[in-house]
């Protein structure tokens, strides 16, 4: 089992200098194996700092991070090994591509894991299939490809490590709607086939509302809200007060409620809103 658990996690940047900044303050939460959790929050709310603690890229100033019950910071070997079990895809990951061919780039992670050639080959091809990169692209230079393709190759590079936990920091940033859709479906596909935990950091409330099982809201380095999309989006005013957006359907529902329409509390998708309005219309007609 690879449940992630953090206790009293605190992180201070530039500790002991005049530029000291508390980025995380007392974060305690647990994410069970296989969950699809979304982390949302304002820029600077600490969400990026938080995810970098989950694979020991950053060490806590106070508190600890447990993976499957074991402290990931217990020694330097543990800090190294956790990077293979918790894969982290950074924002705009296409900037990290460096090899001559797509194949070699995807193989970088597995090679660092010191796997044998056959296993590396299996993983590279499998990861490429997951993100919809055709075989003939594998021998091309990653630098010749389109932005969306590069993004998917970078994600494949992390998936090829076959992590139990896959964390993605804004994987759809800067892509057009079709590109976003493809990446999200790749991620869902990976999760379904591998049973991995997926943690998604996103600014797009519509995406989050659609695919997440659980939403964790960060605000100024603290855990502000934590619950299912239905729970979180039934309190849209609080999200707005934190400077966050809500899904467009929720925003529209809020505006309709202000105009006296009696709509159910938790609406966060087009279908829900449409159904609620049609039900209201039927009710009126009877």
């Amino acid at each position: 089992m690879s449940e992630i658990k953090t206790g009293g996690l605190r992180h201070v940047y530039s500790l002991g200098t005049p530029f000291e900044k508390v980025a995380l303050d007392g974060i305690g939460l647990s994410i069970p194996q296989g969950q699809l959790a979304a982390i949302i929050g304002h820029t600077g709310s600490g969400k990026s700092t938080f995810i970098q603690h989950l694979n020991a890229l950053l060490s806590p100033t106070e508190g600890q991070v447990l993976l499957g019950g074991e402290d990931i910071n217990r020694d330097k070997y543990a800090r190294r090994d956790v990077k293979q079990r918790v894969g982290l895809v950074f924002q705009y990951p296409e900037y990290q591509l460096f090899e001559e061919t797509v194949y070699k780039d995807i193989a970088f992670g597995p090679t660092n894991m010191k796997l044998d050639a056959e296993e590396i080959d299996r993983r590279v091809r499998k990861a490429a299939r997951f993100v919809g990169v055709e075989e003939e692209l594998l021998e091309r230079s990653p630098l010749e490809l389109s932005g969306g393709q590069k993004r998917r190759i970078a994600i494949a590079g992390v998936i090829a490590m076959e992590p139990e936990v896959l964390i993605l920091d804004e994987p759809t940033a800067g892509l057009d709607p079709a590109g976003c859709e493809q990446i999200l479906s790749n991620i869902l596909d990976y999760r379904e086939k591998s049973g991995a935990t997926v943690i998604l950091v996103s600014h797009s409330m519509d995406d989050v509302a659609r695919i997440a099982e659980r939403i964790i809201v960060f605000d100024q380095g603290r855990l502000a809200m934590d619950g299912s999309p239905a729970e979180i989006f039934s309190r849209p005013e609080e999200l707005v007060a934190m400077g966050l957006n809500v899904p467009k359907a929720t925003e529209l529902a809020m505006a309709l409620r202000r105009r006296g329409l009696r709509l159910p509390e938790s609406i966060f998708s087009h279908e829900q809103l449409l159904r609620a309005l049609l039900a209201l219309k039927e009710g009126r007609a009877c």
Partner: peptide, 29 residues
Amino acid sequence: MSAQKARGADFETGSLISRAKALLPILVP
């Protein structure tokens, strides 16, 4: 550097040559 570390790159150990080689994944991007 963080992104490559997350993919298991190792910049701290090994011989001088292997460490110089480890810089490629940073320098190229």
